[in-house]
Nucleic acid binder design. Sequence first.
DNA 1: CACGGCATTTACGTAAAAGTCAATTACGCC
DNA 2: GGCGTAATTGACTTTTACGTAAATGCCGTG
Lengths: 128, 128
Amino acid sequence: MREFYTITELTREFGVSTRTLRFYEDEGLVMPVRRGRTRLFRPADRHLIKQIMRGKRLGFSINEIREIIQMYREPPGEVGQLKLMIKRIEEKREDLRQKRRDLEETLSELDGAEEACVERLAELGVNT
Amino acid sequence: MREFYTITELTREFGVSTRTLRFYEDEGLVMPVRRGRTRLFRPADRHLIKQIMRGKRLGFSINEIREIIQMYREPPGEVGQLKLMIKRIEEKREDLRQKRRDLEETLSELDGAEEACVERLAELGVNT
DNA sequence: CACGGCATTTACGTAAAAGTCAATTACGCC
DNA sequence: GGCGTAATTGACTTTTACGTAAATGCCGTG
């Protein structure tokens, strides 16, 4: 496990621009350390970026991603906070389960659509 | 099955504004018929809106949703078009499968986070 | 018929999430 | 120690997906 990554290494790995990674830093999603003015991303930052990209692919906004990321952190020490966090986690999970239902439905409709295409091809005498 | 729905009925059902439904019409996603200037949505339009909302929840852009919706339509008559459409459908499916992987990972990380919270509560002597 | 209430059209506004550009600044190396 | 490459910062721009406001139309009811 390497100790540091430069910004351009990570832009290449994740297919985003430097502007994007700096934007995430401005938003407080990642906090790379500095050597002089240069950002040095640690493995933990890299992992966070991975989670951000996942969240993006799932259609979460930056704010939602921020919330999710906070859930991955060390649990708070106070009971009320802990219970609140558990509630929030449960809500996010419900959200994700809804997405999963949406996903399965969409997938199966696409299956149907493809089948219709294949049948139509068969009618036209094309061997698939 | 009712023949027509008014715009406000559908806004209530789907929790969106009239502006949104009119926007979808401008974008060519739905094509309600008119009585005078008033829009009348048929069951097919309603079903389309349902699909649009699903796509939105999954984080697809309007353009992506438009593409997906076109896949649900009657398959084209020409062989080249059919093969192209099958390719597009396969791409979308791959996209959805990626989302599904992202989803499962996020869900299991949330599981872990919740567990950590519950444990922490137990340490504090709270009965969950 | 006047009115309340929902619909429509047109036009402008805006927040989120970056993209783009220009002007520095710093680093590595020969 | 000069030079090219890479990184930074700041300002401005863009795109998407609607929101909002103003002016007007239509229609059933009392």
